[in-house]
Design a protein around this nucleic acid. Sequence first.
RNA 1: GGUCCGGUAGCUCAGCUGGAUAGAGCAACUGCCUUCUAAGCAGUAGGUCAUGUGUUCGAAUCACAUCCGGAUCACCA
Length: 598
Amino acid sequence: MLTLSFMTIEDILKSDIQKAITTHFDISLDDILLQPTKKEFEGFYTFVTFSLTKATRKSPAEIGQTIGSYLVENSPVVGGFNVVQGFLNISLKDSTWLELFNDIFSDQAFGTFAANGQSVMVEFSSPNTNKPLHLGHLRNNFLGDSLSRILKASGFDVVKTCLVNDRGIHICKSMLAYRELGNGETPETSGMKGDHLAGKYYVIFDIEYKKQIAALIEQGMSEEEAAKKAPWILEAQTLLQLWEKGDEGTVALWQKMNGWVYAGFSETYQKIGVSFDKTYYESNTYLLGKDIIEEGLNSGVFFKKPDNSVWINLSEEGLDEKLVLRGDGTSVYITQDLGTTELKNDDFHNDRYLWVVGNEQDYHFKVLFAILKRLGRTYADGCYHISYGMVDLPSGKMKSREGTVVDADDLVAQMVQTATDRTRDLGKIDDFDGDEAKLLYNQLAMGALKYYLLKVDPKKRMLFNPEESIDFQGHTGPFIQYTYARIRSIARKAEQAGILATIPAPEYVLKGAERELIFTLSQYPSKVADAAREFAPSLISQYAFELAKVYNQFYAEVSIFSDPDQDAVRLRVALSAAVAETIRKALGLLGIEVPERM
RNA sequence: GGUCCGGUAGCUCAGCUGGAUAGAGCAACUGCCUUCUAAGCAGUAGGUCAUGUGUUCGAAUCACAUCCGGAUCACCA
């Protein structure tokens, strides 16, 4: 008796094909490639024979016939085959499918890989404390969160970190506007969430600043000069200096406003189900990195220009000369990032470091990683920029100053409202109490939103049209959640009727829909591995949708309980349970919860 | 201008380690609920895969060029 496992069925096929080729043609291939058989043909695995024509001097169809016949006679798993031109379509024996399903069904940890001894840090979210989160941040947060879950499932030890940008000129801008025009307003007196309140003053700063520039231009100043000499920008710079000196009043204002913002952020994070193991604050790390500059100067990696500024020449890497420290000895972005990366490595000693940051910073990360390599940092090879595309509106890029941003809190609230309306219209949960209903609305709202943002390849920019609400039907999170809820209903009924989920004897003849389900289920672990390798939660999204679709076809095609064959009933209950469990796991990797009923 | 990313159905997206008549969802149109949840299923219609050339038995997929869109090339972060 041969023991199968979901991981090896393709390997067995490949090895048997290899044997067939060696036996009949006396050649051997480095790698046998199998592809899933197209729906319109019979079979599940397809081997393409065109590439063998030269070596064998036989026609593609003849090669297919030869290998197919060999497999049917010699492979313990192959049940049949057909050849269409150069395509050898292979079917498995039903006993093989059942054995395969037995492995899946009895494996609690199906799709979860054993610890691989590697650790990885995922840094994501990284908000500024001068404005609330928007749709772009949501994509970042969901990607980072999902990636963390996927890496964990594939065997990594994962540390989730967030680097909060809580200092700098932009923070001083909202502080200044608040100090001048705030009238002591607080989240309590205004009824606004703290992050929104801070954001309001950031916008006010910009409005006032623009007025001042206009006034100076009126007086005959050039635009460039006016932008530098407007009273508020000078005042904001003064505020930044005061902050850096630790001026009591300035620091107190900074702490007060940041406190409001953090309260607002934590409310949002909780709502969207995102958390971190460690949060770094730029106010603590912005001075780091200068010792690394010193080190690099000594080792000749960096060089000084006459004005005392420090540079690195990265033309060998196809990059430019890059400033790493200003002439006055103050840091630039890359200085801080060098220091923070070193700090992260000192703190955690991970094997890999990921940064989930928009693709507008592609160049920055190329430079950062190149410098780390030049400095001989061994961890440099484990650094990856998870570059994702912007979320654009039909009108183009979101711009906070032009008021075209889609606010995260607003969007979430809107999704909850839509979920509530939809659910009430359908009237399926009229017996739910208030809390149960609320939980469901949130699950559905977040399911729809997260799925919407995670179904697209992270690297690509995507379009969001605020005029069209995010769907709850079709290729969506709720569709998959619905499939889960449907199966839970089946499971409850089975339990009531005392029907046990069991797998029939090898003689059982499977229905097409049942085979289709087992095949789709069997793909799950490799999808998890692919998603982890490619840093692409979208692969899990696509898979979850595919699985739900295949189940719904099965559900429509066969009757689970009314089949006279009790073996069939018990198998279908088992299949349903395995699908539900796999959906739950797959959606879990996307940070999406599943409802028992909906 | 240099570099990078993208251009697939009316819309939003898969497919891109080369392989069968290019796939989903939405929108449109047809059917299917007195049997397990119709947030579902089945079907119809919709495509010169931006354009051109090349490589190959075979190209949406690879190479080169062109056009279009975006990002970046800051002593901003």
